[in-house]
Design a protein around this nucleic acid. Structure first.
Lengths: 340, 340
DNA sequence: ATCTTGAGCGCAATCGTTCGTGCTAAGTGA
DNA sequence: TCACTTAGCACGAACGATTGCGCTCAAGAT
């Protein structure tokens, strides 16, 4: 079925290389217009499709990039990945995706697998703050972009959200509403997102002279169930919080679910604020107040930065920090009057 | 950096082919144990990584499959895709994903691109009921599995949900609750899912002698916004429905949002039922009654069927129809007493 | 009439692997 | 001792494309 250049050459009575030149319309070498048309017609007639593997073997460029994603079934990463694919597809690149479930062994296997497949570069959304494998990659000067999470200290090839100012904004907003007992449902401290948002939370409290209460710092997961359990834990406190800032929308949704089940009314009894603004998740009732992040655009930017590296442009000097903006909706409100 | 077989051969003083045999530990040919160890050590020392492109070129098997997905940022497809990747990864296959946004031109470009990259097979979650490109592929005997949606008539290589019995179950459940004015927020009729669920809806009504009212059949999109607008349209009716069966959870969530905004209380004023049971979507308040579908397992099964084809097993005679089960939660209730 | 020039194409090496075939030496049986 | 097997490896042709180089021949220059 699949015709090759060689066969086309035989059919046209010319050397395969000549066919190659017309297919790729080689700018340097020239082929007579008549022959050119004849070959084009022949290629069309036989439905010639170039074998990209062979081409890549020869040119040493696969036009494929690898993406390491914690879990594509997480809508956050799905949307981000969509951004990656959109940006790559229109430039004739393809993506191979591997899920890691935040398991470093799976991550490393993913990296070797992708390199064996000769990907031109990697986009890693899986980096831990101290990630040997990733640091190794960077040291080798292998083309890499760190997406969403970065290693410490933040390298220039990172594309991440403004975690610190974002969580600072969220907490200060809650303080402005009169809240004093503000909890944080945190993400894993091994990831820059979890770590930095936690840091922003603490610094915001400190700036406003609100003493830090370790009981109000709970969690350690980025998922719905984690938020649910963390909220349950918060509700057992003798003085429960009046507001909670969750590390992301998923955890926020889980927290709202737990609060609802405990008979609390949001935002009357409890204010909840999330992070990311995922459309499928933030449309809870009441609608979630959250920090909006251009998730799709982040994916796009990561892909573009990677492609820029591949085109040999000198590496970026600074990481891309994407702005987050507070979207006030219905899950937050003034602090309830203290009981007497 | 990257060492090749040839270089390893030179270093070990043997022919590259010998190195190849020990790397792939060729079962037929034999290499002396001592040489074998020496080569293995050398490969390890230089961090040899096989070039999979070269291998594929030679063996004519890329161990890559292509997946055509309408939109990976849709949590339904994301979860399904996760199933695909899980099943493939553990068998040393990788996936290249392309989004089509249900645009047939993009679909066809996707197919050619994937074939140029020499994928061993394709999983298509994008098939329309009358899809020339897909039918062409099947006619060519190119290894293909149709996932979620199938062409008409349903081919043996399809892995799809029990759309008909599912929607029949949903509507009969609503009828059992006393509902008579039951609306359907439908999906596109070009897709088997939209078409078949619509058919089940109509047949269920007919079986129970409920006259079909064209005003109650609305929509045509699978997305949240579509459900929202369809519900708004239903609310303008002089006699609005007391129950709505949505083609999927996303549309159901949109419908609930519209109903809420119109001041209706679910399930008291309106019952809503979805399809798919997506964890991130179905956790609305009230929790969505829906038809549960083993979405992840569907992806897994599609991948397994494709691999079975690749291993030359005789094609399946029958399509895989995955069972759906009604999960009754809080968004459905008895029909409100007719006003007097 | 000879030289130059360049258009138009062919040649062959190469990318990194795989694998059928063939060669050599040591071991076996009669 | 002599064919004969077999273990252990080398050889080289693929796979399908790319690309620098070189060849040929007609047209223009001198």
């Amino acid at each position: 079925m699949a015709v090759t250049l060689k066969e086309l050459g035989r059919l046209a009575g010319v050397h395969p290389s000549t066919v190659a030149r017309v297919i790729n319309d080689d700018p340097h070498q020239r082929v007579s217009e008549e022959l050119r048309q004849r070959i084009l017609a022949l290629a069309d007639e036989h439905g010639y499709q170039p074998n990209r593997l062979a081409r890549s073997l020869r040119t040493k460029r696969s036009n494929v990039i690898g993406a390491l994603i914690p879990d594509i079934s997480n809508p956050f990463f799905a949307l981000m990945f969509r951004g990656i694919e959109d940006a790559l597809a229109e430039r004739d690149y393809s993506v191979i995706l591997a899920n890691t479930d935040d398991d470093s062994a799976r991550g490393e296997r993913g990296i070797t697998m992708l390199r064996e497949r000769q990907v031109d570069g990697l986009i890693l959304a899986t980096a831990r703050r101290h990630d040997r494998a990733v640091q190794q990659l960077i040291a080798e000067h292998f083309p890499v972009v760190l997406l969403n999470r970065h290693t410490d200290p933040i390298p220039p090839n990172a594309v991440v959200p403004a975690d610190y100012t974002g969580s600072m904004t969220a907490v200060e907003y809650l303080i402005g509403l009169g809240h004093q007992r503000i909890a944080h449902i945190a993400g894993s401290d091994e990831m820059s997102t979890g770590h930095t948002r936690r840091q922003g939370y603490r610094d915001a409290l400190e700036r406003h002279r609100i003493p830090f209460d370790p009981d109000l710092l709970v969690g350690g997961s980025f998922r719905d169930q984690g938020g649910y359990e963390a909220m349950q834990q918060l509700l057992t406190l003798s003085i429960p919080p009046t507001a909670v800032f969750a590390v992301n929308d998923l955890a926020a949704a889980g927290a709202m679910r737990a609060a609802n089940e405990a008979g609390m009314v949001i935002p009357h009894d409890l204010s909840v604020i999330g992070f990311n603004d995922l459309s499928t998740v933030a449309q809870t009732t009441p609608r979630l107040t959250t920090l909006h992040l251009p998730v799709h655009a982040m994916g796009v930017k990561a892909a573009e930065r990677l492609l820029a590296q591949l085109l040999g442009e000198r590496g970026f000097v600074e990481p891309a920090i994407l702005p987050v903006t507070l979207y006030v909706r219905d899950s937050t409100g003034p602090a309830p009057a203290p009981r007497e």
